[in-house]
Design a protein around this nucleic acid. Structure first.
Lengths: 110, 110
DNA sequence: CCAATGCATATCCATATGGGTATACAATTG
DNA sequence: CAATTGTATACCCATATGGATATGCATTGG
């Protein structure tokens, strides 16, 4: 049951490096599958499958144009990830605050 | 080759819902394994394994105290994820800008 | 209408992984 | 020292999944 039914989840979709590459490529704008194949250096069927996963979690949207399928980024799908990680942000930033406090104390001692 | 050698990667560690639960629980502070077992309602071996994955990507740190192992959150490990998603943030916020523009235009027409 | 092009899907193989259960171990307690 | 407690590991099983390759389809060009 490797990663139970988590597939349809943005976190999982983005856990795959290739899929992040695809999303990164799409920040430049809409692209046909073929272009992504060239960019990623992957076999076309693989790219199509990754795109399918991304589609299923809503991270990309397709548009048909002739025999091409133009994929476009749908950034909103990444918001849940952002929200989750953002709730941890203050935790690693507190470190800085603590460090600054310590440095401040050291200064005061002189 | 399911998710090739990605295991030692924060994105992958966090793709598992249970592991996010563990991290969420640790935001309250250091906790022994047993407590996490109770909190998650998972078998102890599973919790230990999830903790191992989290340890391997540096998301948690262990401290031995008697026969207990106290796990503590290491939020810095999540920063790469935050950085990556953050680079998409302006993309979904632009939507709001666009919407506001449209609303503004509608207003101007009246 | 036939060949070519652009994609999606199906199938096969190998492997990573999650849950279950048993077990090994170290530290603590009596 | 024996029993108990807290964890980590080892195994087994089922399944999700990534890459490879073949193939099915629809659109387009000659």
């Amino acid at each position: 049951m490797a990663r139970a039914a988590t597939t349809a989840d943005a976190f999982n979709a983005v856990a795959e490096p290739r899929r992040r590459e695809i999303l990164d490529a799409l920040t430049q704008g809409e692209r046909p599958v073929n272009e992504l194949v060239t960019l990623l250096g992957l076999a076309q069927p693989h790219v199509s499958r990754h795109l399918r996963v991304l589609r299923e979690v809503g991270a990309v949207v397709v548009r048909e144009e002739g025999r091409q399928r133009l994929y476009r980024l749908n950034p909103q799908a990444l918001k849940p990830i952002h929200d989750w990680v953002a709730s941890y942000q203050h935790l690693w930033e507190e470190r800085f605050d603590l460090l600054e406090d310590v440095l401040g104390d050291l200064k005061d001692e002189h």
